[in-house]
Design a protein around this nucleic acid. Structure first.
Lengths: 187, 187
DNA sequence: AGGGGTGGCTAATGGCATTAGCTTATGAGC
DNA sequence: GCTCATAAGCTAATGCCATTAGCCACCCCT
């Protein structure tokens, strides 16, 4: 080992704060290096390239989300668990909208695994409905799509009208809870 | 006027086909120019810059979607309209996944207006539920968030497990229809 | 005290968006 | 049919960015 200095985690951390402060479009290696007080090429000692940095950031974001959500869901079941999950998810997005916009979905194993950890937590919350496996997977996808869609749109400021988003989100939670509880077909 | 040749619309068209063929990440002015059989700087005679090209592409995509959806919803009401709307939306995404990934939401008026046209069609479909204005707006946001979330994830290939997406989407439609029909509170 | 490896640096390359300024074809009016 | 203004194209140049190559200094371990 040599000087302590930077590390991959530290670089990711600097990059995440940069994105928080200046938006996802401001993410360049030059800007990260400048914040870290280092020359641009030095970053390559810690991350392979920009694409990997993006992936590492996404993993960190998903893990943060997973941790928060895991805590929120603990000890609750069924409707209450979904409500807590969705509320916690949105809180994170509202706290860090740019960070959420910087999330990338790549087929890369590292990112896919972090996504899976997140999905597993949702899956666990939905099993509380007594769903069998395949059914729970479909339900989880619906939950994920719904939350993610709202999150993306809110993070990008895509909702124009003056109606309160809090109220919309209450309705969204209601829609998910009601819609997933009502059986699709009487099979 | 001078030579017919290119036009802003033609550039947008070439760019959309490029994205369809090679993915959203392949969108560069150099690549568009090459496809159009022209030198890169020539594009600036038709679009202001890359950001404007992206915006114009997004407008085109949203208008295509609006046209399809307008047709699909015509003559249907309530549940059937929502079902048709969601099905048509997803068909477009499956046909043009890269194009959908290239969609940008900016506060720019041009894009916001195209988005509004799309939202208005959804709003019209939801009024069929007899919702009053504010209620219909919240419901439209839920519908939009849900569809968009699923579309983004499917376009990015973010669903890993082998379960059929068709089945998931059936459940999603069911969730939206059921969830939006059930009143939130008996106010 | 010394040596190996790690983490930093400067310099160089190539792709891209964008701007400046020149050239030419076209079509409207005569 | 000729002229000319202008739209639409071009080449050249700039500057930012990611990435690579190759060099140097510091620190820990012995």
């Amino acid at each position: 080992m040599a000087r302590a200095a930077l590390s991959a985690d530290a670089v990711v951390d600097v990059a995440l704060r940069l994105v928080d402060d200046e938006g996802a479009a401001a993410l360049t290696l030059a800007a990260v290096a400048s914040r870290a007080g280092v020359a641009t090429p030095s970053l390559y000692k810690h991350v392979r390239n920009l694409a990997e940095l993006r992936a590492l950031m996404s993993v960190q974001i998903m893990d943060d989300l997973a941790e928060r959500i895991g805590g929120a869901v603990l000890g609750r079941s069924a409707d209450e668990a979904i409500r807590a999950l969705m509320t916690t998810w949105r809180e994170y997005v509202v706290e860090h909208p740019h960070r959420y916009s910087a999330l990338v979905q790549t087929p890369e194993p590292m990112v896919a695994q972090a996504g899976q950890r997140l999905v597993d937590i949702m899956l666990a919350a939905l099993r509380a409905y007594g769903m069998e496996d395949s059914e729970a997977i479909h339900a989880t996808r619906c939950l994920r799509a719904t939350m993610h869609g709202f999150a993306v749109l809110e993070a990008q400021n895509a909702f124009q009208l003056p109606e309160k988003l809090d109220e919309t989100y209450d309705l969204l939670i209601h829609m998910v809870v009601t819609g997933l509880r009502t059986p699709l077909r009487p099979t």
